[in-house]
């Protein structure tokens, strides 16, 4: 298990370290420079703003988006380019301006997976509600894509 530093190029001089509880990983140590602030928060959870990204399986692209404000709240996310190589919804450009992303490589785009209990084969990705993050400032938000080619229940694995 590894928490992703949001900006690996920057080595913070003395980031504060604290311990937080999570549902899936028990107590973990988090550095202040690993925290991502989602503002507004995810729809349905707008009151929660602080998250970390946790890499879980080296051989698969899935990550945990773990909330720090509510230990039981965690989402499985994936870079949509693993699912659709040309995923480039038009609201991304506005989101980059809103989040003050200067360089494309500072932008992290993730989509949230829904895994039906007991039916992992039927997992879907929400291509309508990507989470976009400025890795430099660690500020992010969920944007809404209203484009008929992108479903909120995009099947990830073949039936």
């Amino acid at each position: 298990m590894k928490i992703m530093a949001s900006d690996p190029q920057t080595t913070s001089t003395d980031p504060a370290v604290f311990t937080t509880k999570t549902r899936n990983f028990g107590s973990i140590e988090v550095r202040s420079d690993q925290i991502i602030y989602l503002d507004p928060g995810l729809l349905g959870f707008i009151q929660y703003h602080r998250y970390i990204l946790i890499e879980h399986h080296r051989e698969a692209p899935f990550l945990w988006l773990q909330c720090l404000d509510k230990e039981g709240l965690a989402f499985v996310v994936v870079d949509p380019r693993n699912l659709l190589s040309d995923y480039q919804p038009s609201p991304l450009a506005q989101a980059m301006r809103d989040l003050k992303v200067d360089q494309a490589e500072d932008l992290k785009v993730l989509v949230i997976l829904t895994i039906p209990p007991g039916k992992p084969q039927e997992m879907t990705a929400n291509l309508m509600g990507p989470v976009v993050i400025n890795l430099k400032t660690r500020q992010g938000r969920q944007i809404i894509v209203e484009d008929p080619q992108y479903s909120h229940k995009h099947r990830v694995l073949p039936a």
Partner: peptide, 8 residues
């Protein structure tokens, strides 16, 4: 969709 996904 977010509420469903949160149950992972």
């Amino acid at each position: 969709e977010n509420l469903q996904a949160a149950g992972a």
